[in-house]
Design a protein around this nucleic acid. Sequence first.
DNA 1: ATAGGGTTAG
Length: 632
Amino acid sequence: MLNSLSLASPLHHLPSKKLKPSIDTNNKVQTTPSIVHHFTSPFELKQAIAFLIKTNIPLSLLPLPRIASVCALTPYFPFAQQIFDSVNEQELSVWNSCLRKFAETPCSAADVMFLFQQMRSYNVGVDCFTCSFVLKACVELRDVSCARIVHALIEKLGYQSNLVLVNALIHLYAICGVMGDAVLLFDKMPQRDVVSWNVMITQLAKEGDVDEAFELFGRMKERNLRSWTAMITGLVHCGKAKEAVRLFVEMEETGLKANEVTVVAVLAACADLGALELGRRIHEYSDESGFKRNVHVCNTLIDMYIKSGCLEAAKVLFEELKDRTIVSWSAMIQGLAIHGQADEALELFNEMIRMGVKPNEVTFLGILHACSHMGMIKEGREFFASMSRDYNISPQIEHYGCMVDLLSRAGLLQDAYELITRMPIKPNAVIWGSFLGGCRIRKDVEMAEEAMRHLGVLDPLNDGYYIIMSNIYAEAKRWEDAARVRKLMKDRGVKKTPGLSTITIAQATHEFVAGDDNHPQADKIFKRWDKLLEQMRSKGYVPNTSLVVLDIEENEKERYLYRHSEKLALVFGLMNTKAGETIRIMKNLRVCEDCHAAFKVISEIVKREIVVRDRNRFHCFKDGFCSCKDYW
DNA sequence: ATAGGGTTAG
């Protein structure tokens, strides 16, 4: 190939390098045909060269970068080399600029790799720039074996102390999932810069090793905004939203100003915590800083307002957002779903389709979620069928989870069971857990026992399942079985998660645990409750003591019920906020049935909106009704 | 020439 190519090349006609000038003595500019500059194939390149030779124009007028890019990925590679040689050009720099161009072009990583291979096989020496472009392509391709080749090359060429290259290598190893190699490299670096540390922090946190990341963060002598942002993002990612917020405040104290990425991270933390006040503050800051048009920021803001119970604020932002992405739509649909506005969620989905936006698997999760929370069985089934049929999205375990939940909640246990046994993915604890919840509604002890058999294997340390099962027995008056489940739980060392509710007033978060008598305002709270209870009774409230599965006196049961954490938080909130103000409560578990009934009545008595975020969704109590329409 | 961000079941 090479020989025939050389023979075919017009170059050997050339007395290379001794060429006449292209401008003649009369100062007339000789016009060159556009092919000399705009050839797009090696064939046209040859034609251009032939023309130059015929008209005695020097070859050095040829655009070398163009030659490089036209020949780079073809067998004409050595032909290009000959041209570079004939015009006395450093070929490495030409190939490098070609590599750079590929490296900057999206989806051209494979081209970078191929050109690199060509360079190696035609003995072009490489330098640190070559390495950096190739490393970038390796990142895109997650090509760890090429990473090792470049690594060896870097050592061979003596670039071990080139921070840019070594940092890129560390990043590459980490992103390819070989964190050990990354750590090894990082540890033996004689000196590091802030990028080295930031890369490690980011990747360690991504792997879930947030403690190790934090340890490195603590050891840094010099931190920049990206260091703080990486650490805050990592903490949020690992479910440590409180710590993330703490670190953000600390960062502000150093005088550093958050950028868009920092804002996204801290807003995500607010969303997790339902920290509305901080979220609003960040929103203001973000607007002041001109981040309004950043779609990442907007999407996270929408999510923050949704998860903080301000659906209206989220809607306004969503309406104002002009460049919505699928993430914006999905977040909003999911938001409407957890706020019990299923009709609006479906409407929004239709609007999205009308606008030509393609749903993804997350969008369908939101839609199915909406259906399951509102008992829309027909619609849910149709959407589930539609996702693979019309949009070519195959359902994942989460989608099956939604469907099992939809059917189980609606009491269609047989259908749910059939789906579980026939689904192509092995059902997990969430699936059986949803089913178990349905068994409780249907009071189906046998089916519940079947679910428990699976749960005992899949998630034996989760207290929730034991509690539901023992409640199911208790409601069937099978006290011994109920006690047996409680004992089994105890024997396995599973502790019951205590109910915990929080309410934030004037930037202070107050925590209430079920049965808590030790709160500083406990006496006042109980007194206020007794007063409220009188009014509630006159409105027809009857305590649902059947929910207390302890073998105790009836009035003792009532006492238990009245010490539920959400009730304590609510009364505290009523005592410490102005009349008419909305009260927002967060609970770590699902809201209890009796509390739900009580809150409806209370919302009417005190003429307040009460917004409760439980572990699944929102309940917005107003004028004696709840936004969940008592289906949850 | 090297580091970063949004939606996800019970």
